[in-house]
């Protein structure tokens, strides 16, 4: 078996590029903690209220300290439950100031869903029996659409919300 001189250079260059990519990703993931969402915590999908975060009164946005927020969400076909406001109205929009650190915590009571805050790096699968959580700093102003990006049934495209960063 024989490799042409140019092919050797090409393969070293190509593999070298791949190693560079992996080093960038690995450094960010293992030293800076920017792994993709991989939360390991299970829950009974038929009794999610057993977990404090997913009890009706705890859903939605909570400020835990200055500039730090938690959002608890229950996904179900075909809705994101973001809790109710003081007047008892259903919340569809979450408003946080720019630069806030927000922890999204979500589970599902039925089928698999997706949870993406479109235009940000918040993008996770939501699976029955598991809790998904992802913390991020919302750096940019704007209105970001929350979409269910994993097919969950014939009303899949009607599952949404909004995150407003002001």
């Amino acid at each position: 078996m024989h490799f042409h001189k140019y092919e050797k250079i090409w393969l070293i260059f190509g593999s070298g590029s791949l190693i560079v990519f992996l080093m960038v990703l690995g450094f960010a993931a293992f030293w800076k903690g920017t792994h993709p969402q991989s939360h390991i915590e299970t829950i009974d999908p038929q009794n999610i209220e057993a977990h404090e975060a997913f009890q009706a009164e705890n859903l939605g946005l909570h400020e835990v300290e200055d500039g730090k927020y938690i959002v608890n969400i229950v996904a179900s076909a075909f809705n994101y439950d973001l809790g109710k406001d003081e007047n008892g109205d259903i919340v569809k929009t979450i408003r946080v100031p720019k630069g806030s650190s927000v922890l999204f915590q979500i589970t599902t009571r039925d089928v698999v869903h997706g949870f993406q805050v479109a235009g940000t790096n918040v993008n996770m699968m939501v699976e029955p029996g598991h809790i998904s959580r992802f913390e991020t700093v919302l750096k940019n102003n704007g209105e970001f659409t929350i979409v269910c990006n994993e097919y969950c049934g014939i009303g899949h495209h009607l599952m949404f919300g909004t995150v407003e960063v002001y």
Binding site: H4, Y6, I9, W10, F13, G14, S17, F21
Partner: peptide, 20 residues
Amino acid sequence: SLKGTFIAVMLLGVFILASW
């Protein structure tokens, strides 16, 4: 000579780097 091949694959490599 495989000079053309070499230039072509290196351009491909640059494209991969740039998009990544």
